[in-house]
Design a protein around this nucleic acid. Structure first.
Lengths: 190, 190
DNA sequence: TGTACATCAGTGAACGCGCGTTCACTGATGTAC
DNA sequence: TGTACATCAGTGAACGCGCGTTCACTGATGTAC
């Protein structure tokens, strides 16, 4: 049963959204094409009308997931606080794709690696601008350090099976990053 | 053909070592039991004489990989330098298991999560002691921050498909961590 | 605007394949005498 | 120490299953008149 052009475009987006969430929650390999299609409200046979292969879907879903939400300015302090929060730790499926999928992406197709690299670059640019506005010296270096620590800290807090240690990891990573940013800020040491 | 007890123990260790390397290189799901056994110089049928299941192997291999190499003191500066080096970036199979496997571990069995949590704790203790010796204030917090940034930075450098950006990520993450440790060190600001 | 037909998005059965796991068998090891 | 036999680590064929992918079919959509 053929559907309208708009409906087809909408279905494609549904597939991408479902894939993006499922991949973040379970990893690329643990999610089947049929599972994605079911989550999108379709049957598995229609998949190849939208994508060339599962690898193609992975690359497209990564690009979708890495799209910046709106284009408004980033508040770096609020971002850090939210990033290293229990809420973000619990919300794997809807959380930062860099935290959930970067490690797996390095074994994917060149297209997937290009998508994650692009997402990384965009995130770094946004953070660099935000840190520069805050008066942090060498904002590019600070953005790289901040992002590395954020992603590492969140990943550890998620993997950890001890809730107390997990909370400590979130809090201490956050405190350490914030303190470092203050040290490097021109208006802080007065 | 039965083998001696010592030979059997040796074979078990060979399986664990092969699994540890293959898992780090390709991830848990992309490695088959037969592949591990072949890498260990055995056939796949004998696997279940050593382990209850693939999940059991994953947990045991994680514990093996997380064992600290020797028990000598950690030189934090040399550790950071080596960790964020092109050599370590290239050596995924033989590199830090925390960097390669933490993200995937959160979807594994409770036993696997316990193993990675234990490896994390041990690494944090070693780094805390080393940072304390260096005179860093709040060494526990510094260890958590250092480890998060190290793992995040290495992961990004590995996933990145642009060699120039990858090098920058290694260098800037390293410079950022070292600078932070200096700021927090009692003997540095003179 | 209304009709007739070609197009094609989605359906669901079917495919080949590799996976984790099982099992009957083999033959060297370990033990009892 | 030497012999006879039970044990059991490792072998390789076989299993059931779920995966990615294909394909003949369906029926609503889009278009030509």
């Amino acid at each position: 049963m053929r559907v309208s052009r708009e409906q087809m475009a909408e279905n494609r987006q549904k597939i991408l959204d479902a894939a993006s969430r499922l991949f973040r929650a379970k990893g690329f390999e643990a999610v089947s094409v049929a599972e994605v299609m079911k989550a999108a409200g379709l049957t598995h046979g229609g998949f190849y009308g939208h994508f060339r292969s599962k690898d193609d879907l992975i690359a497209c879903a990564l690009a979708t997931a890495c799209e910046p939400p709106p284009n408004r300015k980033l508040d770096i302090d609020a971002f850090i606080k939210g990033y290293l929060s229990p809420r973000h730790r619990e919300n794997v499926a809807g959380g930062c794709p860099l935290a959930g999928l970067t490690a797996e992406s390095l074994r994917q197709t060149p297209e997937a690696r290009a998508a994650i690299t692009d997402g990384m670059q965009q995130q770094l640019e946004r953070m660099t601008a935000a840190l520069q506005d805050k008066g942090v010296a060498d904002p590019r270096q600070a953005a790289i350090g901040n992002l590395a620590a954020l992603v590492g800290g969140l990943m550890f807090a998620r993997a950890c099976d001890d809730p107390q240690l997990s909370d400590e990891l979130l809090q201490q990573t956050r405190a350490w990053i914030e303190q470092t940013n203050q040290h490097n800020s021109s208006t802080a040491d007065t």
